[in-house]
Write a protein that binds this DNA or RNA. Sequence first.
DNA 1: GCCGGTATTTATAACGTTTTAAATTGTTCC
DNA 2: GGAACAATTTAAAACGTTATAAATACCGGC
Lengths: 379, 379
Amino acid sequence: MFKTFSQTKIAPCSVARYKDAQSQRSGNPVLAETPKSTPVDAPLKAAKPTLRTIADLTGFAVTTVSRALSNAPQISAETRRRVHEVAAKIGYLPDRAAQRLKTGRTNVISVLLDPHEEILGYGTSLMLGIANALKDTPYHLIVTPSFVAGSNVDAIRHIVRNGMADGIIFSRTEPFDPRVRLLLEQGFAFVTHGRTDFSTPHPYVDYDNFTFAYEATKRLIARGRSKPTIILPPRRMTFCQHLQHGFMTAVREAGVAYEIPDDIDLDCPVDEIRDFVSRRAGLTDAPDGFVCGGEVSALATITGMSDRGLTLGAEYDIVAKQTSKLLVNIQPKVETIYEDLVDTGFRMGTTLLAAIGGETDPEKLQTLLKPTIVFPARG
Amino acid sequence: MFKTFSQTKIAPCSVARYKDAQSQRSGNPVLAETPKSTPVDAPLKAAKPTLRTIADLTGFAVTTVSRALSNAPQISAETRRRVHEVAAKIGYLPDRAAQRLKTGRTNVISVLLDPHEEILGYGTSLMLGIANALKDTPYHLIVTPSFVAGSNVDAIRHIVRNGMADGIIFSRTEPFDPRVRLLLEQGFAFVTHGRTDFSTPHPYVDYDNFTFAYEATKRLIARGRSKPTIILPPRRMTFCQHLQHGFMTAVREAGVAYEIPDDIDLDCPVDEIRDFVSRRAGLTDAPDGFVCGGEVSALATITGMSDRGLTLGAEYDIVAKQTSKLLVNIQPKVETIYEDLVDTGFRMGTTLLAAIGGETDPEKLQTLLKPTIVFPARG
DNA sequence: GCCGGTATTTATAACGTTTTAAATTGTTCC
DNA sequence: GGAACAATTTAAAACGTTATAAATACCGGC
């Protein structure tokens, strides 16, 4: 089970001749200079096959080959078969640049990266899901960071203005999000993580935060907590209202006391949340149940309460939104409701592809993911 | 400080006519149909200016304009000035597709995304940094996920084979990483986060994990801990050896007992680490000092120890690598040494650009980032 | 006023694809 | 045997840029 290592010598990465990283692309039609060449990876950079190559190989004209590959109707079945066969054999892949130049389609999806998404792999999970949806399509995923948090409308304007992508994905929407307004006005394909209050419908994938907050709060009350509270995201974001609404509904139904902290939110630095919770716990009428919109705030809450000598499960309970394996494995006493961000990304990807493909039915472009509630047996 | 909200009605996103997300790109030379048009964002999708536009406007030939914009030497100063002026005025931006088609350069950097990077914003921080380095260049950042963990050599082969990018960025290198071998063989520009043991040098940005582990271990010993241990990454990765080496050096120098768990690593699920720590703490001769390579493993360790009734700072200490604000703010008693991943990404970006630009001096393409040690005064 | 030479500009072709329009082949029918 | 027509295939042009090679303007010197 345990092993003692002898002190191993780390060979320093010796610095000798340095392989020129350039010198590619000299249109050598045969094989391009094979470098050291382990036999395995030798013939990689062979002459890149084009439509012309297939045309020469089959005897058809370039136009015919192009048509055959795009399965145009006027090509005979036999021709189509033969062309596809040869294309597959020589590993033909259409040149993105040429296609883009000719058609104006970029085959690019742009995902806007908010600095806030740095935390806890939110952005990464979403991207993984999106990439999964794009897997067997010609689409590439390019990430466009907005260096100024919140307002990446300039980045969007740039993408639209210069045709940098066929579609845009972004998160953290506000009720009258200027990004959504801009994209609707320009008729540019996009999908958001989160809804808006615009009267014109637009593609989105959202998590049902109302239900999350409602069920979470109910659970706290069912466990006998008499004063629930909720740590909300910044007020300007749409899903803040959904959370609040769900929380309030459960609270009203049960007729219990409650509290909504006003000067703290999920975007606050972790220590501020921790200190707030700790401070509040020291005053009278402190809450004994927490709905946490994220795992980090849940951890901050636990620490803050623990600073007052209060223990989770004994003096108070937490129900948190779970988006990774972090929280539940570290502190199993926190109850959670799961939001699958990889799946969310996947759905955003397919939704955007549908929108780009011309789908206009809002039914098919709007997804509200219901949380599945699986609380452990009452402990 | 606390505020009670009245139960707000959430207006459901009404579903009416749905704006066609397509119907772009009809080569309207003037302004393209202005949709609803808030006066602000109206003239966005104007006819995209090309070299031809500038040529017509200035009276020069297209070739001359191209040359002037690329600051070719044989263009007269006055011409260059005039062309730049007009280009700026009409907001000219060269067409990426045309440039790529003609030159073969893609102006694309590909970052490989390992599923393991999902945790704790590792990937996102790196990308943010890279994007920052690419900010004022024509380069775009495309993310290429490898769906099978660890071996994304196929993804790389695809990129190289089909000229999908000008350079590649990836992490988690192994001493004789097949990805590095492939790219060196093909003479393709890349930069890694982490070193290898190949005799041919290659561009990298790495964190000095030897020093990290050495200093962390020394700190534990200085605090009076008599049996340090270290939770290492998977053995196959290069930086595992660096960590181990640093740990062992400190241990040998001090002549203290130590222990290296063999069947647990940083990639293990959090609960496995927690359970392992807890189990071990229940046996004899348990370690009383932990060097943790990541924040998550540190949290797992705290919980595991806490399950045995052992408290951080009292019965044991932890020194962990810190890559976010999470850990220190949640549990300030953990001492940390910081690794700035955004900065790392930034350096990887500039390094790769240098490599693509033809730089071959290993001195300029290899960076080893020294941790700055700032431990609080002994408490 | 013409020469050689340099400085500057230009026309033309090409990158690999798709689109438009035209050409070729095959078939049926009188 | 050819007209009319459908089924296939094809040639040529275009997307916006850069590279090659050629043209033109400018200049001093004689």
